[in-house]
């Protein structure tokens, strides 16, 4: 690092503690480095200026999904938001919207965890008990490709922060969890479509989505939850009419 006068970037970071009436924004000056991301700046603040700044992070390579925050109003993984994209600043960092904030940038994930569990995101087999583990279930590359994209979700929850429906309906199962339901429904090894049907088709499921599409736009892993939900709607609609018009073709 050179000793010449450093370029500084101003950070406005959302601060909140449970015993405060109102959140505030605290301003920090952080030296600019070309290869730094917002997470590096947060770590710089915590290590050298203010150890009380609170946020989650771990892998710093875009795969653990901990470090999501609003950066200048957009949901981002802070480990993938380069300072160079926000020059000359100031850079405003806030917790993901549409979640309760516990402290500073830390949001409450319990609601999401319940939604995730509600779609039964595991392989359901009618022959479950007879697993002999002698050989793998066969799956061709094209069968694998049918769900692969929807299996890439890192649960970073940027999609929930981008979703106006999630903003106004706490019960909406939401993009990530519904995409995961679709991921298992499309997996040839799974036989749980019927079991997941009621959860996915209920009012808080796919039909609450109005296809804003921002979930897919902000997804750092290109999962396309909006696509997953619309595809599930298409399947659901076809299924509905089939039950209505050709009930004899439907297994009970």
């Amino acid at each position: 690092m050179s000793t010449a006068i450093e370029t500084m970037v101003k950070f406005e970071v959302f601060r909140y503690q449970p015993d405060w009436d109102e959140p505030t924004y605290q301003v920090y000056d952080v030296p600019y480095r070309e290869d730094w991301v917002v997470l590096d700046a947060l770590n710089y603040i915590k290590d050298t200026i203010d150890g009380s700044l609170t946020y989650r992070w771990s892998c710093r390579m875009g795969v653990c999904g901990s470090c999501g925050a609003m950066v200048n109003g957009y949901p981002k993984l802070t480990c993938a938001a380069f300072l160079s994209e926000y020059l000359p600043g100031p850079i405003r960092v806030e917790p993901l919207v549409n979640f309760n904030v516990e402290r500073d940038l830390v949001t409450d994930l319990e609601g999401f965890m319940e939604k995730l569990e509600s779609v039964q995101p595991w392989i359901i087999r009618e022959d479950g008990a007879t697993d002999d583990l002698k050989s793998e279930y066969l799956q061709t590359p094209s069968q694998h490709a049918a769900y692969q994209q929807f299996s890439m979700c890192i649960n970073c929850l940027l999609c929930y922060a981008a979703c106006p429906v999630s903003s106004h309906s706490e019960e909406f199962i939401g993009p990530a969890a519904l995409a995961l339901a679709q991921r298992y429904n499309l997996d040839t090894r799974d036989e749980g479509v019927e079991q997941r049907r009621d959860v996915i088709l209920k009012d808080e499921g796919i039909w609450e989505c109005s296809f804003v599409g921002e979930c897919s736009a902000v997804c750092p892993k290109h999962v396309d939850p909006a696509g997953a939900i619309q595809q599930a709607k298409m399947t659901g609609a076809i299924d509905y009419y089939r039950r209505l018009l050709m009930p004899w073709t439907v297994k009970s």
Binding site: F99, E102, P164, H168, S210, E214
Partner: peptide, 28 residues
């Protein structure tokens, strides 16, 4: 035990927040 989370949402003016939201709002 002291926890008192604060909720932040996009609010009812969400569709003014960015061009892509506005386009969806107009579409609907």
């Amino acid at each position: 035990v002291l926890t008192q989370p604060t909720f932040r949402s996009l609010g009812w003016t969400w569709w003014t927040r960015r061009p892509s939201y506005l386009l969806v709002f107009l579409r609907e």
